[in-house]
């Protein structure tokens, strides 16, 4: 996968997990289909996917897999924890902030994927060891610390629509690829 495809895939993943309704889910899914080499499962009933998506990530019932990092990173699961502020700090280092700051936790999966997109663009624009360190930190010390738990929760949900399962798998594969890349460039004494 080249850098452009990688960016398109991340954007589609970001938009999928930020969707507010069936139409937005469907649009993001179509964009993802364009960006990946595999064929995504065909969806006949986007409304059913929307219902399942809301059960997992939106509500109103207690969420099966809350898409907020601090729920997985804090010793006592909650949103707006200390780890949420780490995301906010990383955004600040990139000169951006969430327009929903203070209302939507900054460590919502899609906001973090958006930061990844931005950080990738910055990495491509120049060769800075500080930027590489920030990327390694964000991936290794943050995303990889919570996303696997979140992915497990999604995958083990009952009656999970194949579309959500596949999109989650793509996200999991992206994370695994990036972690592999990082490890291949790191010295052997790691974390």
């Amino acid at each position: 996968m080249n850098d452009t495809q990688d960016q398109q895939q991340l954007q589609a993943l970001r938009d999928f997990f930020f969707a507010q309704n069936a139409a937005q889910l469907s649009d993001a899914y179509a964009a993802l289909d364009e960006a990946v080499s595999i064929d995504l499962p065909k969806v006949d009933d986007w409304e059913a996917v929307e219902f399942a998506f809301n059960r997992l990530f939106v509500g109103p019932k207690a969420l099966i897999a809350p898409p907020f990092a601090s729920v997985y990173l804090e010793p006592e699961p909650q949103v707006m924890g200390k780890s949420t502020l780490i995301s906010r700090q990383i955004f600040e280092m990139l000169g951006v902030q969430s327009p929903w700051q203070g209302t939507l936790p900054d460590d919502h999966l899609s906001l973090e994927l958006d930061a990844c997109i931005r950080l990738s663009a910055v990495r491509q624009a120049g060769d800075s060891p500080e930027v590489e360190d920030l990327w390694s930190y964000f991936l290794q010390a943050h995303l990889d610390q919570w996303l696997p738990s979140w992915i497990n929760r999604v995958r083990s949900a009952e009656q999970l629509p194949p579309a959500i399962h596949t999109v989650t798998d793509i996200l999991a594969a992206w994370l695994a690829d990036e972690m592999r890349d990082l490890k291949s460039t790191e010295p052997s004494i790691g974390l």
Partner: peptide, 17 residues
């Protein structure tokens, strides 16, 4: 530092502002 290198000029439009 990032601003000085011009790296941020390439930032795509997304959710973060």
């Amino acid at each position: 530092g990032l601003l000085a290198t011009g790296a941020l000029a390439t930032m795509p439009i997304g959710l973060l502002q």
